[in-house]
Nucleic acid binder design. Structure first.
Lengths: 157, 157
DNA sequence: GACGCTGGATTTAGATTCCGAACTCTTTCA
DNA sequence: TGAAAGAGTTCGGAATCTAAATCCAGCGTC
């Protein structure tokens, strides 16, 4: 993760995957169904059968993935009650899960660019009150953009 | 993906996963080994045995994942030749794969915050020539940061 | 030029996970 | 009393994963 144009050859990564926070993150969210669940959750889906209809995955897989996400802290299991119906659980994003939103948007935009087949993207993102699209990127502490070729990795110790 | 603080209940997402670029992206990179391969590649790993030593995954799985990434266009299969040795393939990131870097860095920083166990992150990112850390985020066309609660989703049509 | 070495990749067998459908359980409505 | 709806669990067969052994091609060596 050094320079954009050309990454020097390495035999191993500078940080062993065992104590890398990226690898730890991948252990949780690096799964097709898990990511699709988070996608649906960010669009407001909360209920078991709604997730199932949205994803089309086996109920047993959905059940397992929801449990993992609740245990990891990305989803919170609450109870909802429609009047005249019985109480049921719902799965809502915690702030831990919410903070993955920039990454999901970034993946969406990556797909728009590289997999979009020339069609305009079905969903785009703007600043509130504006109509021009925003994009995922990097900012310094003052909120100014840092272009990809300016990024440098710094190892601790 | 509307407002940060409270997402309204939805029975289905506004975009069916079949023609959603996020879902298409997840089909490619939504896999534990694939993401770990991309992580290693961004750190400069290029050779089969180096990937294998880095990831510790079965060679058959590695072989399959590399093929998927080459077919999808994220990796390019080239040939390298050490003098006195025979020519061998190496797998280098294409610009398509390179452009995933902000997302991988974003995932790293998400892990630093939520899975870091209080330790300072082993790797951080700065602007070239500076020492202050940068972060993944959103910018408008003029390069100014857009804070998460200012983001709005806009559907086409 | 037969032999071993080395790096890349496939084969094989067994364990795990996935999938799809059916089933369970509980409360509410008719 | 019966039927419906929501949230799961159970179960057998199919696909995938893992680990280890094997294959394969070219280079250096003798």
């Amino acid at each position: 993760m050094l320079q954009m144009s050309q990454i020097p050859l390495a035999r191993r990564s500078p940080i062993p995957p065992e104590n890398c926070n990226l690898a730890r993150t991948i252990e949780i969210v690096g799964d097709r169904w898990t990511l699709l669940i988070l996608r649906a959750a960010l669009y407001g889906v909360r209920r078991f059968d709604d997730f199932q209809a949205e994803l089309g995955c086996p109920r047993t897989v959905l059940s397992g993935r929801l449990k993992i996400l609740v245990d990891a802290g990305l989803l919170t299991k609450k109870t909802y009650k429609v009047p005249g119906k019985r109480a049921r659980p719902e799965y809502v994003l915690s702030s831990m899960g919410m903070s993955l939103r920039p990454i999901l948007i970034g993946l969406t935009q990556w797909g728009d660019v590289w997999l979009g087949k020339g069609e305009p993207p079905p969903i785009s993102f703007t600043r509130a009150g504006s109509k021009t699209a925003i994009r995922a990127g990097f900012v310094d502490p003052e909120g100014r953009e840092v272009r990809p070729d300016q990024i440098r990795a710094v190892l601790r110790g």
